[in-house]
Nucleic acid binder design. Sequence first.
RNA 1: GCCCCUCUAGCUCAAUUGGUUAGAGCAGUGGACUCUUAAUCCAAAGGUUGAAGGUUCGAUUCCUUCGGGGGGCACCA
Length: 510
Amino acid sequence: MKGWRKDLADLQQAEAASRAEAEILAARRAKLDRLREQGIEPFPYEYDRVEPIADVRAAHEGLEADTQTEARHRVAGRLASRRDQGGMSFLDLYDRSGRIQLQATSDTLSADAFARLTELVDLGDLIGVDGRAFVSRRGELTLHIEDFEILAKALRPPPDKRHGLQDTEARYRYREVDLMANEESRRVFIARSHIIAAIRRTLDDDGFLEVETPTLQPLYGGAAAEPFVTQHNALDRTLYLRIAPELYLKRCLVGGLERVYEIGKNFRNEGLSPKHNPEFTSIEWYEAYAEYGRAADRTERVVRAAAEKAGYDFEAEGALRFDRPWRRLTFARAVEEATGINLLAHATDESLRDAVRANPKLTKKIPEFEQLNWPKLADELLGEFVEPGLIQPTFILDHPVELSPLAKRHRDIHGLTERWEAYAGGMEIANAFSELNDPDEQRARFEAQVRYSEGGDAEAQPYDEGFVRALEQGMPPAGGVGIGIDRLVMLLTGRATIRDVVLFPALREL
RNA sequence: GCCCCUCUAGCUCAAUUGGUUAGAGCAGUGGACUCUUAAUCCAAAGGUUGAAGGUUCGAUUCCUUCGGGGGGCACCA
């Protein structure tokens, strides 16, 4: 449906939906007005000396049912539910740390205040409370309200108190509502924050510097992907949103910063899927005088620290054992185990195609194999037959040189590079190499990419003379790693889709 | 881009497989209730069944198109 027809449909739908909803919104506005008439400001400026609810709970752990205390606490949060009972009312309040029951009685509060709390305060409003702790006859820690204040009136109702917000689209589109309604959602994003903090801390402690490099780049590079293209008006030039920070970070190594990392957004102009958001967060670090084996060791440590900080249970059934050394398997061996093809024994396009052609199981999964060159075909074999089975953390080592234009050649095996990709849960989560620092070879690799590009490969990497020039200044040998943070968070929080770990994922226009 | 599934009250779900006036809980509204916690009880209210068209005596139910969402394929990290 396009143009006016769609507009009309939307209008009719909005019209139909409005009546019942309008009543609900009007009721809340009426209460707002009544509060103001009573001289109560529904949007005050502050409410200080608030204690996290979890701390209040911790302070009274283990008290028996039907116990009074003299302890007074001040908490603030959102009202989740209310059970009125005439001259008394129980309410549930929650903040980021937890939930606590409140009790209001007309004995303690003035008649006005009690009526305000039970009649003019709605579910979803933010309130602050001073109360005395006691444990109810049913054994629930409760604050008996001695004073309260409305901290912000909610003019829209909160989601269903039993079911929360379940509509998937609404959860992404109105994430603030998802966060307030679904504790599980809050838990994921708190874990995400902890994961990033743990990564940062681990690298900081190991002498790395956090740096920031351009997101708007005159020339994109550092990965195989299509970029977003944008325009700078004053400079009157085309700029690209970066697809990776890699090349700039290596220039920092040239400059002598020695150990650098950057946590930030990359942008790739590709389709959406449960594993792909057009903007995603990565950590890349580069360590001078190290190579890819050291990079792997450090990756294990960083991910383990992140998992621990996120409270990941390594002992749970089906848990990913990030707490143990990861399996290490060469690219060639992985492919041979899965397909029976020895890549190194089939070193030409034709030879490898022959080997694939001979096995119907392979041709079925890769029907376009006749059009693929050796590196693309090798990559397909890995992607189709190896990757889905890599559940426990695994390093796949030593990729073909044609697939890895920024990696050093393998020191022992011709045609390969010193590179690894790390997999877990059937997804690639990290990529690393002994960084190519020979400017002449880098130039030749870029030239090869340009030839692929001319051959129709939209993702071949562009020639970056500025980067080669930087290498000509001398870059120390280095190990570099990139980790997809969103995917790591998915694994560590047990989410199946990237949209559950990105606060505001890309959505169709409403 | 292709294939499959889905859309019912503000929210979460029903409607005996095409049959009378589309029901319930929550939320909201009015009322009762001083240890409740999915509080309970009483009352009223809330709907163009995603939209448009078609088949039929009759459509929430079947068909077509369009729109939203979900899942899969392809591409990618």
